[in-house]
Design a protein around this nucleic acid. Structure first.
Length: 528
RNA sequence: GGGUUCGUAGCUCAGCCAGGUAGAGUACCGGACUUUUAAUCCGGCUGUCCGGGGUCCGAAUCCCCGCGAACCCGCCA
């Protein structure tokens, strides 16, 4: 058995960076600066999985730097893509803009220059909140400034060979006929309806006709315009099957992760890069899609998506980074209800990092420490932050809604969980509080109270409404039940249902005083 | 048709990607606290790690073959 040599910080990210470096070395390429790329879709509301591409690429960048190399993350926004369908929940007037590049469609939210910019800004905002640094590159600028013009030229002059290879590799036959380049129609501004049918290499222009195109299940009619587009200046874009390759060469990209849904495209692009453009394709890693809890693919065009913005209402930025860094393989169903477990898991690796928990073997300790370091973007805190079990906080936040931070803190100190208030814990209370409010809100139980129980409740309301606080409320409740011939057990259950929408709960006497006896009196009297 | 992932306690899942004593939450049982009610705390229980083969001193983990489930691609980006 060979001795396991630990690379970097012992995580899959380090291993990947190492493989990348070995490959670059064997290719004999300059490693002065190693660029990694991630793509951002701009055609729908970005969900938390969309962050994954950039976050993981950033992980590789960190690992490379950790191993002593310079690296940079290029975040490329596909904002010249055409809008294919209207995401759920967005206004209907967008349909007149279907097939237009998302950067030339008005922002339906009215806060950005365009639809595309709005969507990519949401994603970048998520990255910013996680502390991910990147160089933003827009597709629109890339084409408008002719950054890919040499690659487009080479690809178009080899389009026949490429078309055949695409058919051979992935079975898609359309590029045996059509050129893998979509001009934006100069007349109607649509992208996919304009079909390029001839390339004029000397002039670097494509001839196109704006006909009809099939997008999804619907057929789009073009305007019939016959045009000529200058690939160095005019708007238009390469088909996805060849565009990555062009970008890789133009931006000198050495690493790009991809989701399994575009596996075929990557296969073709690798070939195009290697054989047509003469640029050895970057190192890749494939990851699984994030699915929602129903097991369906989270589509960027659906409205009900788990966005980073929503996630951060309930979970810390580190809980997102942990989700994305803990592993790369495996189909993942992700939802807000994963947040409590991730918050706990983060705390666990934090304990390992600070030596509070010992792992059974060295390699695992190293790996968990490494994971903690990556989740902290290789800048972990010097001293361990205060932490309180997130699920416990949810329970407490369910109970205390008003003056929540102070009340929960007081309770935690009573429990002996913490010694004194701290900003770390305040922050956690806010997050857990949002979670409790949005997902664990007790619904009012339909409860019919009859006869003796009703009488007992009314006695209790009287007691709670008195000016002076009862000395031993727990005992009083018990006495009220007995005096009315109600089983204390049943009486307690009714009270829990009214106050907590639950069959059981904490010791009632002190609890009622905690949440305010007059308030309880009011809610109990609603059942009389 | 092609590809990928998953299958582990009653339930939900982690562990697998760098092989070394089978784990957590929940449920359940018992205890502490309590005048019969615990969001809390302590303790306990639960396994054909889908089946079969291979590599290895050693496999839930790596490889191969099955079975089952899900997803992606075969429009387009």
């Amino acid at each position: 058995m060979e001795e396991a040599k630990i690379i970097g910080r012992g995580t899959w990210i380090d291993k990947l960076a190492d493989e990348l470096l070995q490959r670059e070395k064997s290719l004999g390429r300059d490693t002065g600066i190693i660029r990694v790329e991630s793509g951002l879709g701009a055609s729908g509301i970005p969900h938390i999985g969309s962050l994954g591409d950039a976050v993981r690429a950033y992980g590789v960048k960190m690992a490379l730097e950790n191993l002593g190399f310079k690296s940079e993350l290029v975040a490329y926004s596909d904002d010249l893509d055409g809008l294919r369908k209207i995401p759920e929940g967005l206004p209907d007037w967008l349909k007149e803009h279907i097939a237009k590049p998302v950067s030339f469609i008005p922002d339906p939210f009215g806060c950005h220059d365009s639809y595309g910019l709005h969507m990519s800004s949401l994603l970048l905002e998520g990255l910013d909140k996680l502390g991910i640094r990147y160089k933003f590159q827009r597709g629109v600028d890339t084409y408008r400034n002719g950054l890919l013009k040499d690659q487009i030229h080479t690809i178009l002059t080899n389009s026949k060979r490429i078309g055949e290879k695409i058919a051979d590799l992935v079975g898609q036959e359309k590029y045996q006929e059509a050129l893998p380049y979509f001009p934006v129609c100069a007349n109607c501004g649509r992208l996919y309806t304009a079909v390029a049918y001839e390339y004029l290499p000397d002039e670097k222009k494509v001839k196109y006709r704006c006909g009809s195109a099939t997008i999804g299940s619907r057929v789009l009619e073009g305007c019939g315009h016959d045009g000529v587009a200058d690939i160095t200046r005019d708007l238009g874009k390469l088909a996805w099957k060849v565009e990555f390759a062009a970008r890789w060469q133009a931006f000198d990209i050495r690493f790009e992760a991809y989701g399994k849904d575009i596996m075929d495209s990557v296969k073709v692009n690798d070939w195009v890069a290697d054989e047509i453009l003469g640029f050895q394709h970057p190192t890749h890693v494939k990851y699984e899609m994030f699915l929602d809890k129903g097991g369906k693919k989270i589509s960027k065009s659906l409205g009900n998506v788990v966005t980073s913005q929503a996630w951060l209402r309930y979970g810390s930025p580190k809980s997102i980074l942990l989700l994305l860094y803990k592993r790369i393989t495996g189909t993942r169903e992700v939802g807000f209800d994963d947040i409590p477990a991730l918050m706990e898991e983060y705390h666990e690796i934090e304990n390992v990092y600070f030596g509070k928990i010992k792992m059974e073997n060295e390699a695992k300790t190293t790996k968990m420490r490494g994971l903690y370091e990556y989740v902290n973007l290789l800048n972990p805190p010097k001293t361990q932050p205060h932490y309180v079990n997130y699920r416990l906080l949810i329970q407490l936040c369910k109970i205390f809604r008003e003056d929540r931070v102070a009340m929960v803190t007081k309770k935690l100190i009573e429990y002996g969980t913490i010694k004194e208030p701290s900003s770390d814990v305040d922050e956690l209370i806010l997050l857990a509080g949002n979670y409790a409010d949005d997902f664990d809100r007790p619904s009012k139980i339909e409860l019919q109270v009859e006869g003796t129980a009703k009488k007992a409740l009314s006695d209790l309301v009287k007691l709670l409404s008195q000016e002076e606080e009862p000395v031993d409320l727990q005992n009083e409740i018990y006495q009220i039940a007995k005096a009315n011939g109600v089983q204390p057990k049943d009486f307690f259950r009714i009270l829990y249902q009214i106050i907590l929408a639950s069959e059981r709960g904490p010791k009632l006497g002190p609890f009622i005083l905690d949440i305010g006896r007059k308030k309880v009196a009011v809610s109990v009297s609603e059942y009389l």
